[in-house]
Amino acid sequence: MNLALEVRDLEFSYPDGRQALGGVDLAIETGTRVAVLGPNGAGKTTLALHLNGILRGSGVVTVGGLELNDDNLNEIRRRVGIVFQDANDQLFMPTVGEDVAFGPANLGLRGAELEARVEAALGEVDATELAQRPPHHLSGGEKRSAAIATALAMEPQILVLDEPTSGLDPLGRRELVQTLQGLDLTLLVITHDLPFALELCQRSIIVDRGTVVAEGPTAEILANDALLQQHRLEMPFGFNGSALGDRSTGS
């Protein structure tokens, strides 16, 4: 089994003493798309911030065989791209093109090489025409694409997305699914949007109160009404979750 990401016994408490993660174990195979489900305040975002060492708890995080420590933070950050929930937090430069260039420039790229990297990243999300635009005036969908491109420009092995569908209209959501399906990457998608998870991700895990409480194929997880209810999750009105039991998602 070729693991893209492995987390063992990850614990983290905030300085005020609140425990956010209480021993998370996680193993993600290369090339899979995994949904991270769970109620508000379950520790999902905190978990994401540990995957490239923005937050440091106790425990072990291994990315593509490299165990995160103080000396390889930069390499880990290159390997794990994070797309934050509010695209405005991620798009802080004057134009989208400069935002996409920010990461690779920090890696030391300059000139034509840098331009090629920016071009390629924007191309992957079909947003080449946004390069000169200031982020303030983009639509929600455009902001999301641009934010994904900023992470892709680092040429990561794993892409972590925090609530990528929030604030998108139905069409934007559809385009996002297509964009993400087209990426040849390991994906970790934090979301409340269960149909989105079902459509995109082969596997799902449920995180609640700082630990992983369930793990399995997405269809099976979503078919388990009792499990969902126990963790404040629910299929939207009109969806029959239990009918998913015998449906299998593509792998």
Binding site: R77, G81, F92
Partner: peptide, 11 residues
């Protein structure tokens, strides 16, 4: 949060 997003990209 912006700082986190910057650090995530090697700032």
């Amino acid at each position: 949060r912006v700082h986190d997003a910057m650090v995530a990209r090697g700032y």
